Simulated assay, not measured.
Amino acid sequence: MTSRLVVLVSGSGTNLQALLDACADPDYGARVVAVGADRDGILALERAERAGVPTFVHRVKDYPSREEWDAALADDVAAYQPDLVISAGFMKLVGAAFLAKLRGRFLNTHPALLPSFPGMHGARDALAYGVKVTGATLFVVDEGVDTGVIVAQRVVEVEDDDTEETLHERIKVVERQMLVDAVGRIAREGYLVTERRFRFGSERPRS
């Protein structure tokens, strides 16, 4: 059975495009059934529309409270009955209502090797600390900041002449491939989480 993906975006949508391209292969095992955003007029929404994928937008400023925005976003995402929800550059933190509906199915990427350098500036912080390797992490979102169960990681070497920008660009390349590879494996093989250990190849738990 083909896994249903809802992808959340905020910007140019390069990770979204990588997923759309992968899903064009029937053997990949997944398809993007909807794309949601927190702002209008972004390239990611154009990518979805060109691919014939339904889109929806929930802007925080359109709601009386952050909690009401979170609940509305959760309802729209859940209406598409996703097997996985992918944060592909989505720049908003979800809250309790979203996690209550979609716990265990919401994946996000981070530009560092968690648990090192969590937060908004993973590449910058790794560079400032002087590490020789950093990378990208795919994890299951929970209530913390970049604290969820780790699904996959890829290593990127830090070059002597790296700036935050050059390092982050190289991280994004491996992050994109990691995301596509891991989502495909989950779709085809399923997964199981035991305590903090994520394993491919088992029955996928359903909410």
Rank of each mutant, 00 (worst) to 15 (best):
R4P: 10
V7G: 09
V7M: 12
G11D: 07
S12R: 15
N15D: 02
A24M: 09
D27I: 04
A30K: 00
R31C: 05
R31G: 08
V33C: 13
V33K: 08
D40R: 13
I42N: 05
E46M: 05
R47D: 09
A48W: 13
F56E: 14
F56H: 13
F56P: 11
V60D: 10
V60F: 09
Y63C: 07
P64R: 10
D70V: 07
L73I: 07
D76M: 10
D76P: 08
P82E: 06
D83C: 07
L84Y: 01
L84H: 04
L84R: 07
L84C: 02
A88Q: 05
A88P: 03
A88W: 02
G89S: 15
G89V: 13
F90M: 14
L93G: 02
G95K: 00
A97M: 01
L99N: 02
K101D: 02
P115V: 10
S116L: 14
F117C: 10
P118V: 10
M120W: 09
H121F: 03
L127I: 13
A128Y: 00
A128T: 05
K132F: 06
G135K: 00
A136S: 09
A136W: 04
T137E: 07
G144H: 06
D146V: 13
T147I: 10
T147R: 14
G148V: 09
V149Y: 11
Q153Y: 07
R154K: 01
E157A: 15
E157W: 02
V158H: 15
T163I: 04
I171R: 08
I171M: 05
K172C: 10
V174D: 02
E175M: 01
Q177P: 04
Q177M: 01
D181P: 06
R188Y: 04
L192P: 00
V193M: 15
T194V: 15
R199Q: 15
F200P: 08
R204D: 09
P205D: 14
P205M: 14
